[in-house]
Design a protein around this nucleic acid. Structure first.
Lengths: 151, 151
DNA sequence: CTCCTTATTGAAATTCATTTTCAATAATAT
DNA sequence: ATATTATTGAAAATGAATTTCAATAAGGAG
C-alpha cells in the first residue's frame, strides 16, 4: 500500500498534511497486518520522535473516516487498525499473523441483497470480518507467527 | 424468546441456575432489541433486587459463550447484548429501535465459501452485522424510537 | 520569503466500560 | 440437613480511548 494516497486525500478534504500524519500513514501502509494504536505509535516514532499516542488515535480516526484505514474488532473489545482503500469494507483477518485481506464488497453484494430481502431490513452499513488462517499460516501454524511483529 | 431454554442449557453444562442468572436471562429474553449491560441490570433487578453489575457482565459472557446471547458492536467500542440461539451468528440491527434479527448462517454459507475461496483463507469464525432500518422503522423514523426503551 | 490565522499537536488528567479480587452467600449432591 | 464449592456483590483496579488546553507548525496572503 502507498501512504501517499492517503496524504493526497487529506489535502483534498482540506486537512493539513503534517509530520505526525505522514509518519502514521507510513506506519500503517508498511505494516503487514493490523496494528494496535500503541504499535502504530512505536513505528511512527521512527519518523516522528516525540509523537504522542493521542495524535495516533486522532489520525487513525480520521483515516478511518476517509476510508483509508479499517478497524479490526479484537476479542477483548478494543481495536486494531489496518490500511485500507475506500469501499473495501469486508475483510478477512489471519488469527496467527494478523494479515488482513480486503474482500471487495462486490463479491458480497448478491448475498447482501438476499439477506436483506429475507430480513426486510433496509441495510445502511455492514460489519463483516472473517477470522481464520491465511494461506501462509495454514500448514504449521507457527511459521506465520514470525510476521506478528514484522513490518 | 424463552428464557427457560437458556436455563436448561446452564444445567446441561453443569452451571448452577441461580436467581441472578434467571433474572438476567429473563431480562434479555423479554427485551425487544439489544441492551447495554447497565440496562440489563436495571431490568433484571425487578426480579432480583440487589443484583450487581459485575454479575450481569459475568452472566452475559457465559450466555454468549453458550450461544444464547450475542454481542452487538456499538460505535463507541462498547457492547450491547441480545438474546440469541446457538448457530445463528449473523444479525441485522435496527439503528433506530435496536431490534435484532438473526439471519440464519445457512443463507450466508454460499457467500462465505465464495469469499473464502477468493481470499485463500481458511475461515474459522465470522463477525457479520448489518445495520440499517427494520421494516417498522423505515417509514418515518420517529415511530420506532418508542421501542428504544420498550420491553 | 515572512507574517498570520487557525488547524494540529502532546501531556496530563479524565472518562467509562469491563475485569479482578476476595470474603460472604447460596445451589446442588450426599 | 449438611457439606462442598460455584456464584455473587462491593470495592478497587485496569486500560483503551477521549477531553482539555496551552504551545506549535501548516499553508495561504501579501
Amino acid at each position: 500500500m502507498d501512504s501517499e494516497t492517503i496524504l493526497q486525500a487529506l489535502r483534498q478534504h482540506g486537512y493539513r498534511v503534517t509530520r505526525p500524519r505522514r509518519a502514521i500513514a507510513l506506519a500503517l501502509a508498511q505494516a503487514r497486518g493490523w496494528l494496535r494504536a500503541e504499535e502504530v505509535l512505536a513505528r511512527a516514532r521512527d519518523r516522528c520522535p516525540g509523537l504522542g499516542l493521542v495524535t495516533v488515535y486522532r489520525a487513525l480516526a480520521l483515516f478511518t473516516e476517509l476510508g483509508f484505514a479499517r478497524r479490526v474488532h479484537l476479542e477483548d473489545g478494543c481495536h486494531g487498525y489496518a490500511a485500507a482503500q475506500p469501499r473495501q469494507e469486508p475483510q478477512a483477518i489471519c488469527r496467527v499473523c494478523r494479515a488482513v485481506v480486503h474482500i471487495s464488497a462486490a463479491d458480497l453484494r448478491p448475498l447482501l441483497r438476499r439477506a436483506a430481502a429475507h430480513s426486510g431490513y433496509q441495510i445502511e452499513s455492514l460489519l463483516v470480518e472473517f477470522t481464520g488462517l491465511c494461506p501462509r499460516c495454514q500448514g504449521g501454524e507457527d511459521q506465520g507467527i514470525r510476521n506478528q511483529a514484522a513490518r
